[in-house]
Simulated assay, not measured.
Amino acid sequence: MNLTIGIVEDEKNIREGIALLVDASEGFECKHTFDSAEEAMQKIPLLNLDVVLMDINLPEISGIRCVELLKPRCPNTQFLMFTSFEDTESVFNALKVGANGYITKTTQPVKILDAIIDIHKGGSPMSSHIARKIVSSFQTTKTNTELEKLSTREVEILDLLSKGFRYKEIANQLFLSTETVRTHIRNIYAKLQVNSRTEALNKTFLR
């Protein structure tokens, strides 16, 4: 049985191009295309679609808002964002309201079909650079959280440790005694709950 697909895209050339790709591929059927969120919200609940490709930058109502309103009414339909937007805020907002995947319009045709299959099987397909942005966002959040535990002086010392400075060199750089540097480093380890420089740097992603 073919996977039934809906496409919500206001740009005619893109909408028709994706529909043609879907219909020309074995195992897929484009049931309906929509040029606005309003039309999609009216008709998609009646179609029992397997997967909907959803643009974000739609007139009047955004694709993210459209997914948010449709998901409760179409719990068995998988929503795959298909957009030019690559910022992490758009990605997180789309996933938060019920989208199950996020690919960009630069995605190669065969990978679009792969993403449709993946999302139908329960996966969460994403363009590789989008996935990297999400990972980077989580890492930045963790870094900030860990560094917030430290004083300004302790962050300075940790930064110098990450650059390979020895205790005596750090002391000279910051006009401190070596023993004071050792005390700061012991405090850093205690606050971060680690036992070595390597663990401290790994935990704060300064390495």
Results as ranks from 00 to 15, higher is better:
I188Y: 04
D159H: 03
R65C: 15
H32M: 10
N13V: 01
Y167I: 15
N48T: 07
I103E: 14
L192C: 02
N187M: 10
E9T: 01
T178P: 11
V51K: 12
K111S: 06
Q193L: 01
E38I: 09
T88I: 11
T140C: 00
V8G: 05
L95S: 08
R186T: 13
V67R: 04
E179Y: 14
I18Q: 01
L158T: 12
L21M: 05
I7M: 03
L3Q: 14
T83D: 09
E29Y: 12
F138P: 01
K105H: 12
G27Y: 11
A115N: 14
G164E: 01
M41P: 15
M54R: 10
T152C: 13
I7N: 05
I18R: 00
I5L: 03
S128G: 03
C66S: 15
T140R: 09
I117C: 14
H32V: 04
N195S: 04
C30T: 13
T145S: 06
K96N: 01
F28K: 02
V181I: 15
N202A: 14
K31I: 08
L49N: 08
T33H: 05
D118F: 12
M41C: 15
T106G: 14
E68D: 14
K142M: 11
F79M: 14
F79S: 15
T104H: 13
E16A: 10
E169S: 10
I117V: 14
D114C: 00
E169T: 07
K121N: 15
E148M: 11
T198R: 11
K163E: 10
D159E: 11
A37C: 09
L49D: 10
L161D: 04
G101F: 11
T4H: 11
T145D: 00
H129A: 08
N57G: 09
H120S: 13
Q42S: 13
S36L: 09
S127W: 02
P125I: 00
N100W: 05
S25C: 00
E156A: 13
T83G: 06
L176T: 13
S196C: 01
N144W: 07
K111A: 01
I170Q: 04
R197N: 15
S25N: 05
E16C: 05
M54A: 13
A200F: 05
S177H: 14
V135G: 03
I61N: 13
E60I: 00
S36V: 07
M41W: 15
